[in-house]
Design a binder for these strands. Structure first.
Lengths: 167, 167
DNA sequence: TCGTAGGCTTGCGTTAAGCAAGTCTGGAGG
DNA sequence: CCTCCAGACTTGCTTAACGCAAGCCTACGA
C-alpha cells in the first residue's frame, strides 16, 4: 500500500502478525488453493484470474513468509524443469484458519448460485470434521492425507486433497 | 485496488466470499479490536495508527457487510451525540476465525519483544478454551460475556471483554 | 450566539494493482 | 550445435487506493 507501510509484522499481538501476512485477498486465495492441492504457477493464474506479475509477487512473499516452498519438478508433457509451490508446515497449519473462514462464509455470506454448503470431511469415511478434533465417526485423528474438501458446486470428483483442483 | 476489482463476493466458495470481506489488513485489525470491546472512532484511530479517511472507509464497508452496526451514544465527558460501532451477530461469529489467527500467529510468527503467548480464556475460571467447545474446566459453554483475551504484553488489567481496550 | 471538538471529507503525492507486451531460460528437435 | 518453443517472470503504462494534512460540518456547552 502507499506510504511507508507501518506494519505490525513483529508486534506483540499474534493476530496482528498474522494479519500482516494474510491480510490480503490474494494471499488468502492462494493459500486456499494450495491447501486443496494446487501447486503450479499457471494453475494459480488460470483458476484465480490473477495478473501474473501480482501472482509472482504474492508467491514470493508467501515463500519469504515461510508458508510455501519452491520445489523443482519436470512437467509430464515434457519441457524444462520448473518450480512448484508446496505447503510448508506453517502453510499446512492454516487449515483451522481456512476452516473457520469456510464456516463463517457458509453462515454469513451468500452465493449467487446457491448449492449445498462446502464441508471439510474425513476422506476415508466421508464424515465432516473440525481441524484439531477427532473424526466424530472414526474417533481417530484425521491426517492431512485423509482430508478432503467437499465443494458441491463442482461437478467433477477431483475434490480430494492431493488432486490439484480449484475451489 | 486499481482496475475494476473482479471480486468473488458472491462466488460459490465460502472461503472466497470471506476473503472478499476480510482479506484486508485493516478490516482484520478493526474486527480484532472490536472483538475485544473497542467501539469508537477515535479509539480505533489512536490504537491502530490508521489514517482517518481510511478508517472511515473501512468502518463503512464493515457496516455494509453486516459485521458492525452504528449505535448513538452520549460521550461521558459531555459533547454531542455520536455513533459507536458495535458487533453484529455476524461480527461476533468471527471469534473462531480470530482465535485461529491467534493460534497460528503464536505458533508461526515471532514478536520483537517476546512474552508469554496470547490466550482466549473463560473469564470466570481463567481456563483457556476454544470457541465452540466447552470450557475444559467448567464443562460449560462459554458465553461471550465470559470471554477474555489474555495479552501478557499489556501490564494493565483491562483485558476482559467489555472493557474497551486494545491489543 | 459563539466556541469547541470529534467524525468525516477533500486534495495531493506515492505505492501498488490490473493489463499487456517483452524477456529470459532450458529442454526438444533438426 | 543451433534454433525453436513454451512458460515463468519482468517491465512499462494507466488507474485505484493508501498515507498525510488540511478543512469542513454539526451538535452541545458556555
Amino acid at each position: 500500500m502507499p506510504g511507508p507501510r507501518r506494519g505490525t509484522a513483529d508486534g506483540p499481538c499474534p493476530i496482528g502478525r498474522t494479519a500482516d501476512i494474510l491480510g490480503d485477498r490474494w494471499a488468502l486465495l492462494i493459500m486456499r488453493n494450495a491447501t486443496v492441492g494446487m501447486t503450479r504457477f499457471d494453475e494459480f493464474k488460470a483458476e484465480l484470474d490473477i495478473a501474473d506479475n501480482v501472482l509472482s509477487g504474492r508467491l514470493r512473499q508467501l515463500v519469504e513468509s515461510g508458508l510455501l516452498t519452491r520445489i523443482p519438478y519436470r512437467p509430464e508433457g515434457g519441457g524444462r524443469t520448473r518450480d512448484e509451490y508446496r505447503l510448508t508446515q506453517a502453510g499446512e497449519d492454516l487449515l483451522p484458519l481456512l476452516h473457520a473462514m469456510m464456516v463463517w462464509g457458509n453462515a454469513h455470506s451468500e452465493s449467487a448460485s446457491p448449492t449445498r454448503p462446502m464441508r471439510l470431511v474425513h476422506s476415508t469415511c466421508g464424515e465432516s470434521f473440525e481441524p484439531g478434533r477427532r473424526c466424530p465417526r472414526c474417533r481417530r485423528r484425521v491426517p492431512r492425507s485423509e482430508t478432503a474438501w467437499i465443494r458441491p458446486w463442482r461437478s467433477d470428483l477431483a475434490q480430494v486433497l492431493g488432486a490439484a483442483a480449484a475451489p
